[in-house]
Each structure stands twice: as structure tokens, then as C-alpha cells.
Write a protein that binds this DNA or RNA. Structure first.
Lengths: 253, 253
DNA sequence: CGTGTAATTGACCGCTCTCAAACGCGGTGG
DNA sequence: CCACCGCGTTTGAGAGCGGTCAATTACACG
């Protein structure tokens, strides 16, 4: 199995102040700008938004973007790479809250409070767009489309969190995880049926609330049943329909 | 064991347009008004907020406040009673998303989308304050305190959803559920160590992702160990420290 | 070519679910 | 007032899924 392409979000910036007459495209790698375009936000508002964007990175694998307890002052959109958010409980066990792919936003759960409630660490080389939250909140009062977009992002995360809450079997959990990953990658223009897992088995296990051994066993059985081909962290969804069927009750579709 | 007081949120409305010189108190039963007061929102803003509040109810036990797929146009604060939100999966199994006590807000997870993504049903006699969302969103652009409050409510729910996601034992889940209930009731002025469960065992089971039989067994064992006294739906937390200890890793404190 | 860490594999155990039946309270009607 | 019924709850026995523990393998890196 040959190597899949690196998961770098395709950069299509034209110019900071580009105006090609029709649509305005700058920093389209930032989830916000893109989503706000879809919301029909006008040009001047987008300009206002963009001036408070700060491109940060790269963060290398293992480097933290923020840690639990750090003062909260910004949310960030992932531009390239994968960010893992997690907490450590008092027993020292790690609970993975989520994996954030290019185009997705981290830090939303910190809005209630002055400090980040979790850790965020880069799993590979990560580039971010940083949005000062106080500033964006002020801007949101002037730009209804932006406020709406923020509400949507927050509301969506509430629903997403419920995904994990169900009492699904290990097979269903893993299938839903892989299908979910596939769809999110596809939405960003990556190959849906062939990609690489940027996270360790242990991370997947801690995310799905399974033992690492169980993850390993299920992946092996999936491969034996022809549902997928696994080689280390390279992944190919071979039996997508069957996987979709397994994941359907979890993803509610 | 004698009957506990009915869970009706104490109504302290003075007048729709009351102004007693110092603080402004009207419809303090609405979570929003109260929270916004805490945010230091000014008087005229509160007036603006209040004019788009609509008191609805009573809903009687078993009546639905809204159903999955209904067009979304409003969020609501519970004023009295308990509301259960839930979804039915394709296998016909009910998944309880949450129980909403007086002072809490329902419908937040509908903001992303045009339709309610779940059902909401009254477990006992329920009174609501209904807030038109389009209108409150517009008002939020003029009133930063209100926008902030909405962000907080949304962000808080994201964190709360994570509670259920952990791989906790049945004992831990139930202890966390009871302690959480107790704290929320206490925050509204109810007795923390003695209250009644407004939901059926089956509802608790569907919420905690346990079998009803397991809920029954754990409650019995808790009683045998002196952690609590159960009589039908009357509940007394007898061994609060032990319960808190069990719940601690779940509630993260 | 050694070493450390992640991943896999196997054996065993325990928690919780499932299935089934009995119980008990509330409601209805005789 | 009592018999009957229905549903939520409780109780019991058994089984299965996934966790735990331990050993082995595979790979990455120096």
C-alpha cells in the first residue's frame, strides 16, 4: 500500500485584499472565513474579520497548542494537521475529547469560563488561524452573520458530543469513528476511502472509551471481513456499505 | 417518609415594569432574565428582552413541548416542572438526552438547523418561558451581555454532554446523576438532600445508558449501604460524602 | 544492530445486559 | 369494598462483551 497524501489543507488564498468581482476569497483555509462566506456575509465584514486573524504555527507533533487552565483568549481554526483535545482525570487516565481536522475549530468549549477546560496537542505538523475571542465577540455584535455562525458552531458541537454518549458496541463505535473521519476528510477535499490515521491506537481507544486491545482486535476483524485494509496507520475503507450500516445508528442517518 | 415539596420554581415576579430603584426584578423565574441580571445588563436591555418572552403552559405529564422535526423558532426556559429531551433511534429505542429543571434552557441544540433535532416532553406539570430565537438573536447583536450569555449557555452544554461520554461504572453514573440533580436543585433553592425523582427508572436508565434492571439494583445496593433512602420516587441522600466521592471523577471535581 | 515504545495476541475474569418471572401500586368496574 | 388488570419496578439466573493482565511482536530511531 503506497503512502497517502499528507493531510495539508489545500491553500487557496489569493490575496489579503483580493476582490475578484464576484466572491471574495482570502484565507479560505480558515473555517470562519469560509463559513461566513456561505452565510452571505458582506465584503467589509469579512475584512473586519480577517484583520483579527493571526496565523500561528507550525506546531510539531507532541507540542501543545494550549493546556488545561491556560487563560482563554482565543479560539482557533485548524489549517493543517490534526489537533487532539483531551483531559487527564484524577486517576491519571487520559480522556480524548476530540480530534480536530483542517477546517475545524478548537476552543469553543472554553467560551464559558476564563480558562481552557482541556488540553490541545498537535498530532502532526499543525498550522492554525487564531481568532481573539473578545474581539470576535465584539465584531459579532455588529455582524449578524458572524454571530449566527458562532451559534451554529457551538450548537453543532453539542450534538456531536452526544455521538459518543450512546451505549454502542465496540464495532459500532469504531465504524462510526472511521466513517465520521472519512466524511469530514471528504468535506475538505481529501480522499474519503483512503487516508491515514494521524492518531495512535491508544488515542482512538481513549476517544471511543475502549481498551486499546479492543481497538486492535476490532480493526483486525474488520480487515478479516474485508471491511477495510489496515497497514499501520494507513487505512483503506474496502467495504464502505457495511461500515456505513454499522455506523448508521450511531451517526443517526 | 413524608412527601417532599412539589418542584415548583418560586415565583418572585414583582411587576412587568417594576423598578424598585436598585435591582430590576421581573420574571426572575426565567433563566435568561436572571442570568442577564448577573451579567450586569442594563435596564432598558432587560426590558427589550422581556417583551419577547412568552409564558406558555401548563403542559401536563406526557404532553410534548416540541417534537423532532418541528420547525425551530424558539428556545425556552423551564419555569416549573421537569422536561425530558430524547430521540428514538431506528431500532425504536429511546435515548434520553437530558432532564431540564426549573431555570434551565431547552432547545439550544436546535440552533444549528431549522428543525428541533429531538423531542421534549413534560414529566410533570411544566411551565415555560418561550424566547423567539430570531428575535433574541437580533437583540443579541445590540446587547453584548445577552450574546455573551447565549455563548455561555451553549458552551456549557458542550461540556455537560461530555459527562455521559465517559466509560464509568453503573455506580459512578448513578451517583453522578443523583449528585448532579441535587446540586442543580440546590442552585434553584430546593432541598439538596431530599427531593423526588420526576422521571421513571426507565428514563434514568435510558439517560445513563444502563438497563432499567441495573438502575434498580444499584439503587437498592446504595440503600443497603446507607448511601440513600429510596421510597418509590422519593429520595433522600443519606451518605452524601460517599456519593460525592463516587461521582467525583465523573463530575470532574 | 540494540533499545524503547507502540501494537498485537492470548487467556481469563467480571460487569452489565438479556431474558423471564414475580411483585406492588394505582386505576377501573362490579 | 373487593376483584381484577396494567404497568412500572423488582428480583433472579445465565450469558456475552469488553476489560485486565501478561507476553510477544513489530517498527522507529539512534
Amino acid at each position: 500500500m503506497e503512502r497517502a497524501m499528507t493531510q495539508v489543507f489545500p491553500r487557496t488564498d489569493k490575496s489579503i485584499v483580493a476582490d475578484d468581482g464576484d466572491a471574495l476569497h482570502f484565507c479560505s483555509t480558515c473555517a470562519f472565513s469560509r463559513a461566513c462566506l456561505d452565510e452571505g456575509m458582506d465584503k467589509s465584514a469579512l475584512m473586519d474579520l480577517h484583520v483579527l486573524v493571526e496565523h500561528v504555527g507550525p506546531f510539531h507533533a507532541g507540542e501543545h497548542v494550549f493546556r488545561e487552565g491556560d487563560p482563554f483568549d482565543a479560539i482557533a481554526a485548524v489549517r493543517a494537521g490534526t489537533v487532539k483535545t483531551y483531559v487527564i482525570d484524577r486517576d491519571g487516565r487520559e480522556h480524548v475529547l476530540g480530534f480536530h481536522l483542517p477546517g475545524e475549530v478548537i476552543g469553543l468549549n472554553a467560551i464559558d469560563g476564563d480558562h481552557y477546560p482541556c488540553n490541545a496537542v498537535a498530532l502532526d505538523t499543525v498550522m492554525l488561524c487564531r481568532f481573539s475571542f473578545p474581539k470576535i465577540a465584539v465584531l459579532a455584535t455588529r455582524v449578524p452573520g458572524l454571530q449566527r455562525q458562532l451559534f451554529r458552531l457551538l450548537s453543532r458541537d453539542i450534538g456531536r458530543a452526544a455521538l459518543l454518549a450512546g451505549d454502542w458496541s465496540a464495532d459500532q463505535r469504531l465504524a462510526a469513528f472511521l466513517i465520521g473521519l472519512s466524511r469530514r476528510l471528504a468535506a475538505r477535499g481529501f480522499s474519503p476511502n483512503r487516508f491515514q490515521l494521524t492518531m495512535a491506537r491508544t488515542d482512538i481507544a481513549n476517544y471511543l472509551r475502549l481498551a486499546p486491545e479492543t481497538v486492535s482486535r476490532v480493526l483486525k476483524r474488520f480487515q478479516a471481513d474485508g471491511l477495510l485494509k489496515v497497514d499501520r496507520r494507513e487505512l483503506e475503507l474496502a467495504g464502505r456499505p457495511a461500515l456505513e450500516a454499522l455506523a448508521a445508528p450511531v451517526l443517526r442517518d
